[in-house]
């Protein structure tokens, strides 16, 4: 695994980002900054706009207004594939793996993209050895080697989630976005997932949406609370836990 490129300044900056769907303003003036190596969790009640925020940052939609920066470059409105090439990778709340392919092929496709082999008709040259090797190494690191030849659609749900995260990491991103990585899992599976994500995202910048507070406290070093389209508070887990506004808006009310 390559270490993320070192550099100064924040990795991700959102300035006054807003998103409207027709008349509904889902996000209203979001300001957010993520420093290199930071692990940030985004929490908030259902419908707060967390997935929408992810979709804006990862290039699924363009924001209605505001500026998003990845490092030095403005990225709002950029297509997803370009963002990925610039070092931003995301997972999906609803698992999106290639069910008809083996787990190995799933990862292989991600690694191919990282090596810039996006149009290849031929499989000649050293680079293909490197790609295969990288794929195998990554699968081994993720402790999925025993499943490598299995067709993805036959994997158990938690295994598919692991594959999804492994693919997300395999394109070699600096910034990783995970949307509810443990949704739909049992407590034991979620606990395993925390360890898995910790291992897979070591040394990288992480932004994740999560409902499960155990997962949040296990992985994040800072938390932002999103409520009604705005960032209510940002701080360390301890600080957020003690914040009365947050308790009112979220934790006190309906913890999922």
């Amino acid at each position: 695994m390559t270490a993320p490129a070192s550099g100064q300044g924040p990795v991700l900056v959102l300035e006054n980002v807003a998103k409207r769907f027709g008349p509904i303003e889902v996000l209203a003036g979001i300001n957010l900054q993520l420093n290199r190596g930071e692990k940030r969790a985004l929490i908030g009640p259902n419908g707060a706009g967390k997935s929408t925020l992810f979709n804006l940052v990862s290039g699924r939609f363009a924001p209605s207004s505001g500026v998003i920066r990845l490092g030095e470059r403005r990225i709002d409105g950029m297509p997803a594939h370009q963002l990925n090439r610039m070092g931003l990778s995301r997972s999906f709340q609803i698992t999106q793996v290639f069910g008809g392919m083996s787990l190995y092929e799933n990862i292989y496709m991600a690694v191919m993209s990282r090596y810039g082999k996006r149009w290849s008709f031929l499989r000649t040259g050293r680079v293909w050895r490197d790609i295969a090797e990288q794929t195998r190494e990554l699968i081994a690191y993720a402790q999925l080697t025993s499943l490598a030849d299995r067709q993805a659609s036959t994997l158990a749900y938690s295994e598919q989630r692991a594959l999804e995260i492994c693919m997300t990491v395999a394109t070699g991103p600096d910034l990783i976005l995970l949307d509810e990585p443990t949704s739909g899992m049992s407590r034991a599976e979620a606990a395993n997932m925390v360890a898995f994500i910790g291992r897979m995202t070591q040394g990288r910048t992480l932004l994740m949406v999560e409902h499960d507070m155990d997962v949040v406290f296990g992985l994040a070093d800072t938390i932002s609370v999103l409520s009604q389209g705005q960032i209510l508070a940002t701080g360390t887990p301890a600080a957020i836990r003690d914040d009365t506004r947050v308790q009112d808006a979220y934790l006190g009310g309906n913890v999922h």
Partner: peptide, 20 residues
């Protein structure tokens, strides 16, 4: 390799896009 990507597009186009 291109063929693999094309099949990927058939199965989950959006995922392929988010892989770059």
């Amino acid at each position: 390799p291109l063929g693999t990507v094309i099949r990927g597009i058939r199965e989950q186009e959006e995922r392929v896009r988010f892989l770059g």
